[in-house]
Simulated assay, not measured.
Amino acid sequence: MPTFSLPCAPIHMLDLRAQHAPIQHELNAVLQQTLEEGAFIQGPAVQQFADELSAYLDDVYVVPCANGTDALQLALMSLQLPAGTEIIVPAFTYVATLEAAAVLGLVPVPADVRPDTFNLDPAAVEAALTPRTGAIIVVHLFGQCADLAALRLLADKHGVALIEDNAQAIGATFTAEAGPTWMAGTVGEVGTTSFFPSKNLGALGDGGALYTRDQARATYLRQLANHGQTRKYHHEHIGLNSRLDTIQAALLRVKLRYLPQWTVTRQHIAAHYDAALGGIPGVHTPVRDLRSTHVFHQYTLVIDQEAPDKLNRRDQLQAYLQLQQIPSVVYYPLPNHLQPAYAYLGYQAGQFPVAERLCRTVLSLPIHPALTQEQVTVVAAAVRTWATT
């Protein structure tokens, strides 16, 4: 296999230094202001950020918290489900979605995903519903909404809650057929997000938030995130210590103003990848659900596997890219139902064939707002060289 020379600047999977460079003076200014004010917990920037994010998300109630995993746990806590209640989750997702249920004594129940969009398959969800089901957690994976219309209908039909894990799709929208257009994260009883630095809207540390259209639930979530209290030292509920600190909120306020611009840049990069990678045998570019916009938290290929007993072609491509100094990441290499921590659930290989196949065949390429067109061209040319040589 020939090598592919790099005539451009080094390529990074995520380049926060380059992304922050044009706005570094603004980040520095709010950091200095927060240091001078000295209100590092529940300072004014926290509520200001919540209000501004609410406006961006069509005026839902926003409850900031410490991180995205806490947000999922708090969302489930707000449902007040008894131990042993089943929570349907995607079979192909990051472990935090299952973890949040498991630590509360709830039972994660995987349902397979669609092979085209990688998102939760409503038919698989319906098959997994039982009288013990208390909630469905839908993950808008890689930046594209799952089928919110079908999942909302299923949740309502069976009297269960819908929670949206929107850590990867902030700003995406879903338009129901002959119906409204929804912002991702605002359709379920609770939506959750993460501000982990790699996210489309990332802090400079940990952070998270919850969304809801129910004012009473928003109040309850605020209590749960603050030791179960509204008034200091008066604890109405068992809660968590899960607060977004003031410095992160101040920095996120700056970055939120640039999120729409960064989203458009990600979409342009994805379109360039599409054009450059189209038509390569055995290499499949991301499929779009036409009802959803895609904010491209990840740009994820599917690499066909020739046969089960052959060397994994996805891994061969990743190794080739590494030789060319081009980073790539497998999200995710092992499905959660086969993780040792979840062996107690009793699932076996073969039960979720789509998720298991995706774990063997997906590969995410670099995508971030600072990626140049030249760098995209280099990455795509390397993929094409590997696939056609």
Rank of each mutant, 00 (worst) to 15 (best):
N241H: 14
L321Q: 03
A75V: 12
I88H: 01
I136Q: 00
H297F: 12
R152M: 13
P286T: 11
A135F: 02
L148C: 02
Q318N: 15
R266N: 07
V103F: 02
L74W: 05
I137C: 09
H268Q: 14
L338R: 07
C65W: 05
A18T: 06
Q19G: 08
P110A: 04
I170C: 14
Q33G: 07
Q24C: 11
N241V: 11
L6T: 15
E189P: 01
D112H: 06
E36T: 13
G239C: 07
W262D: 09
F4H: 11
G350E: 01
Q261R: 13
F118R: 04
A21T: 03
Q318M: 14
I238P: 06
P44Q: 03
E374A: 15
L256R: 01
R384S: 10
R217K: 10
E356T: 08
L31K: 13
A349N: 08
D121N: 10
T97I: 14
P10N: 01
Q373K: 06
R357F: 09
L277M: 05
L74K: 04
K310V: 12
L338V: 10
P369A: 14
L72P: 06
Q42T: 14
L244Y: 00
F142D: 07
T186G: 06
E99Y: 09
G68L: 09
F174W: 15
Q248R: 05
T293H: 03
I269R: 03
T265C: 14
R266M: 04
N166R: 03
T97W: 00
G207W: 00
E306N: 14
G68D: 04
T3L: 15
Q324L: 08
D15Y: 02
D58K: 08
A355P: 12
H237Q: 13
E164R: 04
P180H: 09
L162F: 04
T133G: 04
T173W: 00
I247K: 11
V107K: 05
C8L: 09
A39Y: 13
K255C: 07
D58P: 07
D156L: 15
R222Q: 08
N200C: 15
Q375W: 00
S5C: 13
I87R: 02
Y299A: 05
L358V: 11
Y331L: 15
V107T: 15
A307R: 09
L104D: 06
A150P: 09
V362R: 11
H12P: 11
